[in-house]
Design a protein around this nucleic acid. Structure first.
Lengths: 211, 211
DNA sequence: TTTGACACGTGAAAC
DNA sequence: TGTTTCACGTGTCAA
């Protein structure tokens, strides 16, 4: 099937110039299309499940996968120790409510959630434990994750109400003392026993890649 | 710019019929386009970084994200305890090689990698430890991950060479005895202290969603 | 035959 | 301005 260009409204007088321009235009569009399709092909190869699928269906599958991977990675980021050293302290309203509800009064003190993320080392937990005791807090629950030499510890603490009030009167925040104590743990012996742990790190990497 | 169809090879005689066909065709194509573009828009909204981007560039970004999330999820799947109970034992050639290389002989026994994935419970590790000792093995290294009440333990063990040989003579595999002992740990007290742990699981979920 | 998917060239609009 | 991106209608091939 052929077409004849009948349009006479062209403001361009020289036919050759126009011919070149049109050619360039169509070619540019062609390049654009092939860029898009290249990425589409990459996605096809990336999703083994969605090979030999409609272009639209492929994109739908991509959407599905991105959503799924996104939530999974999000859950993980929360739970797995990261590369950066980190200390956090915040009140745990929900746990405090549960506690007061089950027992009846506010006598047990405020509930606090604290976490530490750093390089693992022998004795780390006892140091953290000492830091907790140093602010007259008691660990109600603890959760630890250690991966490849990095540790994240999550502590649910009950702090002495009187102690917290006294700290508040002295102008200190409820949590700043605990936070400082935990930072002190992190900054202590940061380069201690490095040899042991560099070796452990290697082994751990092996584990990860082969299991 | 307009076109006149000069081709006379059309087998269609009735112009009206052809007209509706053409119209239906273009409309179908339009629907197809809008299906694709809808998914593209979804991807745009899904990737906050790639808003207001070229269509091709958007797809490029999608490819990048999928690759990144894919490897992250893969790493995670290896390391985070899954929902299914699991026991594994296999020889660790690399560790064995390192060990023999650093010390010089094969006198330390074979290196074995064992792992257990199950519901966490008090005393679990000592039971695992007892299982390890029951096959005359010694834990050289251990890595634990506990998330939301599920635990995965990874043990690098040194098994007594003589013991392994004796087991082999009795027709037992090197690892089957250890594997059985670990399964026994998993199957013991499976429903013990459930109340404590259902509560713990709830708290853990809270942690995960709010930290 | 019809229906759907794809690539193409083009006009228009966005800088 | 011209370069680039997008939507559109169309031809074509395949089921």
């Amino acid at each position: 099937m052929e077409f004849i260009n009948v349009s006479s409204s062209s403001s361009r007088t020289e036919l050759e110039t126009r011919g070149v321009r049109v050619h360039s235009h169509s070619e540019a569009e062609r390049r654009r299309r092939q860029r898009i399709n290249a990425h589409l092909a990459t996605l096809r190869s990336l999703l083994p499940s969605a090979s030999r699928l409609d272009k639209a269906a492929l994109l739908g599958e991509v959407v599905r996968q991105v959503r799924e991977l996104r939530v999974r990675a999000e859950e993980v980021a929360v739970v797995v120790p990261g590369e950066a050293d980190e200390v956090g302290v915040e009140e745990d309203e929900e746990a405090a409510r549960d506690e007061t509800k089950t027992v009846g009064g506010g006598q047990q003190g405020r509930m606090v959630r604290a976490w530490v993320c750093c390089e693992d080392r022998p004795g780390l937990m006892s140091e953290v434990s000492r830091a907790v005791r140093s602010v007259r807090a008691r660990a109600v629950r603890a959760e630890m994750v250690t991966v490849g030499g990095r540790t994240r510890s999550l502590l649910q603490l009950e702090v002495n109400e009187a102690e917290a009030a006294a700290a508040a009167e002295r102008g200190e925040g409820h949590h700043s003392k605990l936070q400082a104590a935990l930072w002190a743990v992190l900054l202590t012996n940061r380069h201690g026993a490095v040899d042991n742990f560099s070796k452990r790190e290697r082994v751990s990497t092996r584990f990860r890649s082969r299991t």
